[in-house]
Write a protein that binds this DNA or RNA. Structure first.
Lengths: 338, 338
DNA sequence: ACATCTTACGTAAACGTTTACAGTTAATAA
DNA sequence: TTATTAACTGTAAACGTTTACGTAAGATGT
C-alpha cells in the first residue's frame, strides 16, 4: 500500500538509489541496459516521484497561494478559473483561501503561505487592507513574487506589481456613451473612499462629465458599503427622492444595479426611458434581470491567466516584474437598461 | 533573506538541532534555562518551522485536494466556501482544481493529488464521470480518504462515502406544494439519464405525481445538456408548443429556469398565473430575475463544511467513513414564480 | 608496460525536521 | 568509595530526493 520509492527500485535491482535516480533522469553516465532495467521496474511498481521530497530538496513547491476577499461574486470566481487554467497548464497548483474582507486574516494568510514555501502569492485584497498597507508592506518578502489583483496599492518603499481592469477607460466609455444618448442628470453609486477601484471610477465619472460640460451634482454621488441588492434598492430610493432626480444611475457593481432596477420598478419608473442603469463587471446576473443590465465587462478569466503568466515570467525567466502594472481592457456591454 | 532553520538557532547557541527542536516543543528533558534561550533566539530570528520538511517527515501534508466540475456556478462556489472555512479552521489547506466536466481530467487530477501526498480528496464529479466509474474505482486508494460531493456513485467493490442534498424530498415538497396550489399539468426539464442527481429528481417527480393521482405526460419530460439559459428558453418553447401545454415547468437548475421565464415572457404567458416555474439550488440569480424564482434550496456552504468534518473524522478519530451517506436537508423557497 | 582516459556505478552530503538511543555530568544511595 | 540514578544534551537515522565527488574496471595511447 505504501508508495514505491527509489529505494524500493534500487533494492529490487540490487543497486543504489543514485543509479536509479540517474537512470530515471536519463543521465548519460548510466548504461542503456541499466536504464532499461530501472524503467521496467519503475513501471512495474508504478513509481511516482515524491513531490514533497522534491520540494524540500529544491526549495520550491510549484504552488501558488491565492487569497480572495470573497468567492461569492461572479467576477472573483472568473478570476479563480483563469488562475487555475493557467497554473495547471504550467504544472503549478493553487492553494486557495478566502479572507472574507478581513484585513487581519489577509495578513495571516500571507504569513501562512510563506511558511508553506509557496512559490508565489496572488491576492485580491479587500478594500480594508489599504488601511493596513504598512503592515502589508512589511510582511511582503522580496524572494517570493507577489502580485496584487483587481486593486492598486502603492507602497512607500516596495514596488509590487498589480493587474487590474481599465476601469477608468471603461467608465469613460460607458458614461460618454450615455451622454451621447442624451442623458444629462448623472448619479453614481460608488464604494467607500478607501477603495482605489471606486476612486478610479469616480474620477473617470467626474472627468467625463466635465469634459462634456455637464454639471456635476454631488448630492447624486453616494457610497455603498456591502454591494448588496438591498443596498442598491435603498440608495436608489434615496436618489429618486431628490427634487432633481437623476436620469442615469451608474453603479459600482452589477448586484447593486439590480437592486436599483428593482427599486425603480417598484416606484414605477421606466428603464431605460426615465432612468438608465449601468452596472459594472458583466456578471452572470446581467442577462438574468429585467430589463437586462448594461454593464462594463471586466475580463476576469483573462486577468487570472495574465496574473499567472506574470508571476511565471518572474520565476522562469527571472524577469523583474516589480514595476509591472497591467491594465486590462474593459468593454461596454449594452443591454436593455440603457 | 533565507528562512531561519533549527540549524541556525543551534549554531547561534552553540548547541545541536535536536536540543533546539526539543526546546521548541517544550520537551521535559530540556532545562528551563535552555528553553528560554532557544525561544529567545527563535523569536529574534523569526523562526518558522518548515512545513515541507514536516510533510516529508510525517508523511502528511495537511492538505486536501478538491476537484470541481466547474466553479462557474453559484452552488459550487458555495460549497468551496464551506470547504475553505472548515478546512482552515482545522489547519488544513485546500488545493483546488477544475475538471471542466472532463472525466479524463478528473482521473488525472486524482492521480496528481495522490502524487502530492494530499491527506484526502474531495470531488464534485461531472455527470460524465459515471461512465468512467470503473477507472475511478480502480484509481481510488484505500489509505487516502475520498469523499464524493453532490453526486451518488456506487461502485462494485469499494465503498466510498458521499454527501448530497436531499433532492428527493426537496422535489417532493416542491411538487406537492404546487399540486396543492391547483397546478395539474406538470412538465420537467431534467438532465441526462446518466446523471444520478437528475434521476433522483425525476423519480421524486414521478412518484409525487403518481401519489396524488395525477396523470404523467411523458412528452412533457425532456432533457437538457448544458444547463444554460439559452437551453432553458429553447426547451420552454418546445414545451409550450405542445397541444396540451404544461402549467408547471420544473427545472434542473435555476439558470435553466431563468431561461424558461424569459421564453414564457416573450410568448406572453403570465407567471405564475398561466405557468409556474420552479428552479433548483437557490442561487443568487433567483432574486434577480423577474418574477423572482421559486426554487429548492441546497445548503452549499453547509455541505462543504460537513464534507470536511466527515473526512477529518476519518483522519483524526480514525472513524471508518466508507459507509457514510450524508443527505442534507433541502428547503422549498417560495418566491413569485409559483 | 605504464600512464591516461572513459565508462559506469557507488558514496555521501544536503534539503529541515523529529526522535530513539547513547552519552555526560552531577547528585544520590549503599 | 562506588554504584545507581536523574537531568540534561548530543549523535545519528529517518522521511525521499538530487548530485558533487570518488572509484573501479576496461579501453586507449605511447
Amino acid at each position: 500500500m505504501k508508495r514505491t520509492t527509489l529505494k524500493d527500485i534500487a533494492k529490487a535491482l540490487n543497486t543504489t538509489i543514485a543509479t536509479v535516480s540517474r537512470a530515471l533522469h536519463d543521465n548519460p553516465e548510466i548504461s542503456d541496459e541499466m536504464k532499461n532495467r530501472v524503467r521496467e521496474v519503475a513501471k512495474l511498481y508504478d513509481y511516482k516521484p515524491n513531490s514533497t521530497a522534491l520540494s524540500l530538496k529544491f526549495q520550491k513547491s510549484y504552488t501558488f497561494g491565492v487569497i480572495f476577499f470573497t468567492l461569492n461574486q461572479y467576477f472573483t470566481t472568473q478570476i479563480l478559473s483563469g488562475l487555475l487554467q493557467e497554473a495547471t497548464k504550467n504544472g503549478y497548483k493553487l492553494i486557495v483561501a478566502e479572507s472574507n474582507y478581513d484585513p487581519k486574516k489577509e495578513l495571516e494568510l500571507i504569513q501562512e503561505f510563506y511558511e508553506l514555501n509557496v512559490d508565489g502569492i496572488l491576492i485580491l485584497p479587500s478594500r480594508k487592507l489599504n488601511t493596513k498597507r504598512f503592515e502589508l508592506e512589511n510582511i511582503i518578502r522580496d524572494d517570493v513574487p507577489f502580485v496584487i489583483i483587481d486593486r492598486t496599492i502603492y507602497f512607500e518603499k516596495k514596488k509590487i506589481p498589480f493587474i487590474t481592469s481599465d476601469d477608468y477607460v471603461g467608465t469613460r466609455e460607458g458614461i460618454s456613451h450615455l451622454i451621447k444618448k442624451g442623458y444629462k442628470r448623472f448619479a453614481q453609486i460608488k464604494g467607500l473612499d478607501s477603495s482605489s477601484i471606486s476612486n478610479i471610477r469616480y474620477q473617470a465619472f467626474l472627468e467625463t462629465l466635465t469634459r462634456h460640460k455637464l454639471e456635476i451634482d454631488h448630492r447624486k454621488i453616494i457610497s455603498c458599503q456591502e454591494f448588496t441588492k438591498e443596498e442598491g434598492e435603498e440608495l436608489a430610493n434615496q436618489l429618486m427622492s431628490l427634487e432633481d432626480k437623476p436620469d442615469v444611475i451608474f453603479c459600482i457593481s452589477d448586484m447593486v444595479a439590480v437592486g436599483v432596477l428593482h427599486a425603480l420598478r417598484k416606484k414605477g419608473y421606466r428603464v431605460p426611458e426615465d432612468v438608465a442603469v449601468l452596472g459594472f463587471s458583466n456578471s452572470n446576473i446581467c442577462e438574468v434581470c429585467t430589463p437586462q443590465l448594461s454593464t462594463i465587462h471586466q475580463p476576469g478569466v483573462e486577468m487570472g491567466k495574465k496574473s499567472i503568466k506574470l508571476i511565471l515570467s518572474n520565476i522562469k525567466q527571472k524577469k523583474d516584474i516589480s514595476d509591472v502594472k497591467i491594465v486590462m481592457k474593459t468593454k461596454l456591454i449594452e443591454r436593455e437598461s440603457t
